[in-house]
Simulated scan of single mutants.
Amino acid sequence: MALLDSYWPLFLTIVLLVLLKYYFFIFAKKPTKPGFNLPPSPPKLPIIGNLHQLGNNPHISLRNLAKTYGPIFYLDLGQIPTVIISSARLAKEALKTHDLPFASRPRLTAAKYLFYNCTDMGFSPYGAYWRYIRKICELELLSAKRVQYFAFVREEEVSRLVRRLAEPYPGTLNLSKMIRLYANDVVCRVSFGRDFSGGEDFDQKGFQKLLDEYQELLEGLSVGDFFPSVESIVLSLTGMKSRLVHTFNQLCKFLGNKPSVVLSGL
Rank of each mutant, 00 (worst) to 15 (best):
R164S: 14
R164D: 15
R164N: 15
L165W: 14
A166G: 08
A166H: 15
E167I: 15
E167W: 15
P168H: 11
P170C: 12
P170W: 07
G171I: 14
G171H: 13
T172Y: 10
N174W: 05
L175Q: 02
S176M: 11
K177S: 07
M178D: 12
I179T: 13
I179W: 12
L181H: 07
L181A: 12
L181N: 10
L181I: 00
L181C: 08
Y182T: 10
Y182D: 03
A183M: 08
A183G: 03
D185H: 03
V186C: 04
V187H: 01
C188M: 13
R189M: 06
V190F: 01
G193N: 04
R194P: 00
D195I: 02
D195Y: 02
S197C: 11
G198P: 10
G198S: 12
G199Q: 04
E200Q: 04
E200M: 01
D201M: 04
F202L: 12
F202W: 08
F202D: 09
F202G: 04
F202V: 07
D203G: 09
Q204F: 03
Q204S: 10
K205Y: 07
G206A: 03
F207S: 03
F207V: 10
Q208I: 14
K209M: 05
K209V: 06
K209H: 08
L210V: 11
D212G: 08
E213D: 11
E213A: 06
E213W: 01
Q215T: 12
Q215N: 12
Q215A: 07
